[in-house]
Design a protein around this nucleic acid. Sequence first.
DNA 1: AATTCCCTCAACCGCGATAGC
DNA 2: GGCTATCGCGGTTGAGGGAAT
Length: 272
Amino acid sequence: MVRAPCCEKMGLKRGPWTAEEDRILISHIQVYGHGNWRALPKQAGLQRCGKSCRLRWINYLRPDIKRGNFSREEEDTIIKLHEMLGNRWSAIAARLPGRTDNEIKNVWHTHLKKRLEQNHLAPEINGRSIDVSRFNHEFKTDPETVSSSNVVASGCDQIQEHRPVSPQRCSSDISSMTTVETSNNTCAKIENSDDFHEMDEVFWSEVLSADNSRAISDLSAIGTEPQLQFPFSPLIIDVEQVHAANSNMSDSMDFWYNLFTRAGELPELPEI
DNA sequence: AATTCCCTCAACCGCGATAGC
DNA sequence: GGCTATCGCGGTTGAGGGAAT
């Protein structure tokens, strides 16, 4: 598609917002809401592009924005969440009421990264530090494994495809990868930590689908204990445990944290 | 007091995802 | 199903201000 010209090319204003512009934007949104950001500046009489208006509202003008320095508790939460989610700032922001992804990203780059470096704080699970570089190296795609089992999960952001495989071809190799049996007789391997972090919504919804019982019977049929294996510890999680967690899963982060703490593999979040 | 350096953070850019036609 | 418009996200930039020289 042809990208819309940027603000400057359209003769629209850029740079810092004035108090007057803020006032106009706030009062417009209070009256009309922000259904269509692209149309908003024209309706409100602002010489800004919709993108700029949206950003200004989200990051600065929203009434529920919490201003001021981050507390130690908030910083520790960000560090903890960053260990689990990586640079998914919006996901992290969703766990910190009143804070924006942009703000968290800034705080991470200006304070927390340095703090971690200074304190030599490596990410930890169950009290053991994780050498991420080693992890990523060891869990790189093994071409032979991938071709022989039609296993998926290439790329780093999402499981890209799920091909049906015979149960016998789904092997668990706890020393190198996580292998998970799903409800529709597909097999996926989590090849690196990024993949793991992305599994929660796409993949687990499949594992945890209504037909979950089949996943368990499938595993039993091939003589494998119904279990999900996670290479960090290694951590073993019963599929039934996953299933139980599904019933009260309010969101993926709660789900994962509860799951791991139930399995005794993650410490409770430290008291600040 | 003037200049330079460094840090912070608001704002922008580019791209992928998604909705709507 | 393909195309287009829009949104939302993560990475990056650069102005402004404080600290150091």
